[in-house]
Design a protein around this nucleic acid. Structure first.
Length: 735
DNA sequence: AGTGCATATCTTTTT
DNA sequence: GATATGCACT
């Protein structure tokens, strides 16, 4: 065990507990830190960096510290700077995605990318896939673009080869997938673009094809630190293995109980197997929790302990027992929202809190609306994190697409977006002709525009429009580097007349669009101000691609925070509400079939519950409006798993008296329909049955196709004729 | 080519 | 219930 050598490091002694100190001082070799919720994991990471620097064990440029969110990275940076001022420059602290983007901007030329390659988000990805499907003459009904995007991403994250893909063919989509995938990659390259997953994969390709580059970076980074290691996917695992191969000073911090990104390719086994990969590793357990009261910890533990895929462990705290966790049953989601706002009022009065001490957490973004309305009607200030993200709004994407084309002329996806926005008479027919011309002559789209006179099938006014369009783009790309990004954007918006167009529309919606565009201009200017070096347009765009809502969330405003459980990871609040604890919603119904997914939902519950410092409220509604209709709901299995001794149960609502007591965690199971009550119902459907549909009326089932995740059926309606319906959405009633 | 209405599709979670 | 898409009409 290393000893702490530098007695000047007074902060190290005073601020850390015994295990934390050991973990900080164990600088050499692989280190696994299993850090429970609220156990001071960020503290250990930052002190470790400070320790390495203060003791002269490493130069800043030899450090690589990776997180999943920019917010976490920023916090780490800030806290290190507080411990050891002025020693940060040259240090690589950031998210996986942003650090590798940086690496690829430097080295990507070897792989055939320019320094200003575009980064495509999911939206762009889907757009690209749609065009491929069209060119392949595949119907979107048979091959949903989103499903393709998801499959491609999953394959990339798991680093499947084409061969493996070709072997794993369960349905029509799988058969088509390899060809689509190939074309997808080909076009990305052609457009000088990468998707999010490429940002992780391309470095691996780089390291494998150019050992000297690997040599350089694996030598450079003497010490590697990884936050939230439980959320790494296969690609991240591999790239880390390469980078740490030389010095083997890799320190990973994580908590298997908080792994909640399996759906994005995270492999919990990375953390569970770390000791196998690095047999000489030292392991530390941080199990003292500094955040929550005993009751909250115990309640959270009573749920998560039902998981099999985990290191057995139990957090402890020196804090008091505190209030019991409050479980509230309400009748409807409206009442639930009302309850939340009432309780916030109550706690404000009695607990000495302010608004920013509260968080309301939910499983799906769709749940935020009712909550929002209830809070608004009580004049409780709130902020929503997530949902429709600022940079995903149409008007913002439109403007950004212009900027992207200016930075990367090969970016056909963005070009397609702006070629007829604002409308300038270049419709799909014209665009198709240009595309065909470009393809035939092996030109980029932009070059095709340049040579538009050679496209003889075009109408005269379309041709003129294109010329004007091209001239404008050209003009801006010439001044791009002379203007500040904000100046360029605002003069572009001015010239395009976007604001004027929205003004003329005059709807409320278009007014908010104007606001958003103005906000974008402010954001560009702000971004330039924050950076110490001069900012390029490219720099801003990269920031946009890799920034999420949670990164901009700050706890300084005095408002209640509304967000998904996923977004809440890493945060803490005095009072936390977890709403919608109903079977089918949390856990989501899709997960109940797969034990692995179910365990992930349970971890998600654990993450949510352990955000709370003093008070934790859980609630469920006996009926909830989903997909328009009113659905009867049943208590989440997580509620049943809660150990009753840490819970107080409250019933709210007019008709909550009858129906026995609904919460009987330790007594006999109440008679409750199967968890999957929906599919239960639907599996009773048989060919030949008479059914009634909300809009189509009465009819007879002709065919049931139980394929894949969305079973379809064909119904012959008496008046509406033959219809194909997707089972989970067709609200059929059996007659 | 562009607009507006009807219809289809769908909701996890995000770097 | 909200949004994206498709179709008919101008």
């Amino acid at each position: 065990m290393a000893t702490i050598t530098n007695s000047d490091l007074h902060w190290l002694k005073s601020d850390l507990n015994v295990v934390q100190k050991q973990a900080v001082a164990e600088t050499e070799g692989p280190v696994l830190i299993l850090a429970g919720a609220g156990s001071g994991k960020t503290r250990v990471l930052t002190y470790r960096i400070a320790y390495l620097l203060a003791n002269g064990l490493a130069e800043p440029k030899e450090l690589l510290a990776m997180t999943f969110t920019n917010k976490a990275a920023a916090e780490m940076r800030e806290r290190v700077a507080r411990l050891i001022p002025n020693r940060m420059s040259g240090m690589w602290i950031g998210t996986f995605h942003s650090l590798f983007a940086r690496l690829l901007r430097q080295e990507g030329q070897r792989l055939g990318f320019t320094k200003s390659f575009s980064i495509y988000d999911q939206d762009d990805q889907v757009t690209l896939i749609k065009t491929i499907l069209k060119d392949f003459k595949l119907k979107q009904q048979d091959i949903p673009p989103r499903a393709v995007a998801h499959k491609i991403s999953a394959a990339k994250n798991a680093m499947l080869t084409f061969k493996q893909l070709e072997q794993n063919q369960n349905n029509y989509l799988d058969v088509q997938l390899p060809a689509i995938f190939r074309e997808y990659q080909r076009r990305l390259r052609e457009m000088d673009a990468m998707d999010f997953d490429d940002l992780l994969l391309k470095p691996i390709e780089l390291f494998e094809r150019f050992p000297l580059i690997l040599d350089y970076y694996s030598d450079k980074f003497r010490y590697i630190l990884v936050d939230e290691y439980q959320d790494t996917n296969r690609a991240q695992y591999v790239v880390l293995k390469y980078l740490a191969g030389k010095h083997r000073n890799i320190c990973v911090v994580g908590d298997d109980d908080q792994s909640i990104y399996r759906w994005r390719g995270a492999e919990i086994k990375n953390i569970l197997d770390f000791e196998k990969d690095y047999p000489e590793c030292k392991k530390f357990h941080l199990e003292q929790n500094y955040r929550s009261t005993q009751n909250i910890l115990a309640a959270a533990h009573s749920v998560v302990k039902n998981n099999h895929q985990r290191h057995p462990k139990k957090l402890w705290t020196e804090k008091e027992k505190g209030n019991k966790v409050v479980l509230i049953q309400v009748d409807t989601e409206l009442e639930e929202a009302k309850m939340v706002s009432d309780r916030i009022g109550y706690e404000l009065k009695n607990g000495g809190y302010n608004f920013s001490n509260f968080a309301v957490l939910y499983r799906t973004n769709a749940q935020s609306r009712v909550l929002e309305e209830a809070l608004r009607s009580e004049s409780i200030p709130y902020i929503i994190v997530g949902g429709v993200k600022f940079y995903e709004r149409k008007e913002i994407k439109d403007v950004l697409a212009y900027l992207r084309v200016l930075c990367n002329p090969s970016d056909a996806i963005s070009l397609r977006r702006i070629i007829n926005f604002p409308t300038r008479g270049i419709g799909s027919v014209t665009f198709g002709k240009i595309e065909a011309y470009a393809k035939k002559n092996n030109l980029s789209l932009l070059d095709a525009l340049k040579n538009i006179d050679n496209v003889d099938t075009l109408q005269q006014n379309a041709r003129q429009s294109i010329k004007r369009f091209y001239k404008m783009l050209n003009k801006y790309s010439q001044v791009k580097n002379d203007l500040l990004p904000a100046e360029l954007a605002s003069s572009l918006i001015e010239e395009l007349g976007i604001i004027r167009i929205y003004k003329e529309e005059g709807t409320i919606e278009s007014l908010t669009r104007i606001d958003n565009i103005r906000e974008l201009l402010v954001a560009i200017a702000e971004f330039s101000k924050q950076q110490d070096k001069p900012v390029t347009l490219e720099g801003f765009l990269e920031n946009v691609s890799l920034t999420t809502d949670i990164d901009n969330w700050d706890d300084k405003g005095n408002a209640v925070t509304l967000m998904t459980l996923h977004s809440a990871k890493g945060l803490e609040f005095s009072v936390v509400f977890i709403v919608g604890l109903e079977e089918g919603l949390f856990p989501l119904s899709r997960s109940s079939a797969d034990p692995m997914e179910l365990e992930e939902e349970r971890r998600l519950f654990y993450v949510g519950a352990t955000r709370a410092m003093n008070c934790l409220y859980l609630s469920w509604a006996r009926s909830r409006r989903r997909y328009g209709g009113n659905n009867r709901s049943y208590t989440s299995r997580f509620i049943k798993e809660l150990d009753a001794s840490f819970i107080d149960v409250i019933h709210v609502g007019r008709n909550s008296i009858p129906r026995r007591r609904t919460f009987l965690p330790e007594s006999e199971d109440q008679t409750m329909p199967d968890y999957e009550n929906e599919s239960q119902e639907q599996s009773e459907l048989r060919v030949g049955m008479r059914v009634e549909h909300q809009t189509f009326g009465k009819g007879t089932i002709l065919q049931i196709d139980p394929s894949s995740h969305h079973p379809k059926l064909v119904v012959l309606f008496d008046s509406a004729g033959k219809r194909r319906l997707v089972l989970p959405y067709a609200k059929l009633e059996i007659l």
